[in-house]
Amino acid sequence: MVKVKEKRNHRFAQNNLSAYLDNELSEKDTLRVRAHLDGCHVCRQDLAALRATAQALSELPRMPLPRSFAIPRQAVVEQRQVRRLDRGFAALRTASVAVTITLVMLLSGDQLLARDIIPTPMLRTAREYDVVAMEEPDMFALELDSPQPEAAQKPADEKSAEAESLTAATEVEVEALALPESAPPDTDVGEELTPEEIAARAAAPPGLGDSEAPRELHPLDEPAPVPDDEAVLVTALPEEDITPEEIAAAARTQEQSAPAEEAIPERVAAPEPTDQVDPVRAALRQAMAVLTGVAMVVFGGLVWLGKKRRL
C-alpha cells in the first residue's frame, strides 16, 4: 500500500519537476514534490540535471544585433502606396474578370450564330430583317449595343461599301481569334436543291410547309421575319438588280432558319458565307475586337501592377 503511494508520488514528481523548478506548481503540489524529493535520489538527480540544462540555456549568449529593426518612415509611406496599389490591383482584377466573361459570351454567341444560322442570310436580305427588327425591337440586339439599327437605316447604295468593310473586319477577326468554326460550313443542302425547287419555295407563301415550324428564334438568332415581311423583302430594294435566285435563296434560308435552330446545322446551307456576313455577327465581331483591345490593356495593367506590387 505504501509502495503504491510512493510509486504514484514518484510519477507525479517526475512529471512536475520542470514546473517545480520554475515555482509554477500550486502550494499543495510543491509540498508533495518536495516531500518526495527528500526520499528519492533519482528524482533529485533528475532535478539537478534539469536545472543545469535550464541554466546552460539561460547562459547562451545574446546574439549581437546586426542592425536596428526600427521601421523607416519611408516604409509607412510605402505601405500607403502599397495599399493604393492593392486597391488598383483589385479593381483591375475585377475588370479583367468582367472583360473575360464578356469576351467568352460574345465568342460563344458568335459560335452559336456560326453553327445555327450558318446560311448567314445574305447581306441584303439581312438588312431587310433589320428593318423588321427595328419595328419589333429585339431585346438581344439592343443589349448587344450593336451598330445594327444604324446599319439598317443606311441607304441601299452604301450597303456594298459597308459589306466590304464588314468582310474585311471579319477577316481580321478570323485571323486574330483563329476561329476555325467561323469558316464556311458545308453547303450540301444548297447543292441538293434544284433551281425549280428554290423557285417553288420562294413562290410558296410563308406560313406553309416548312415555315409552319415554330418561329421563335434563338436569342442570338436573326430577328424573325414576320409573315408579311415578304413584301418588304421584295419591295424594299427595287432599284437593285436582284436576281430571282437571290431572293429565292434568301427566302429559303429564312424558312430554314427556324427549324435549323434545333441544332441541326447540317440541314442548313450557306450560299456565300465568307464574303457575306450578317450584321449581328459583324457587330459581335466588332464588339469582340474592341473587347480584345480592352482585355489586352487590362491584362497588361494587371501584370504591370502585379510586378510593381511584388517589388
Partner: peptide, 23 residues
C-alpha cells in the same frame, strides 16, 4: 499610426525578437 512610438517599442524588443529568431 505614430511610427516613432512604434519604433520605441521596436528598440525595447528587437534584441529579444532577434535572439528568439536566431535560436
Amino acid at each position: 499610426g505614430d511610427v516613432d512610438a512604434y519604433n520605441q517599442l521596436v528598440l525595447l524588443y528587437q534584441q529579444m525578437a532577434y535572439n528568439v529568431a536566431y535560436r
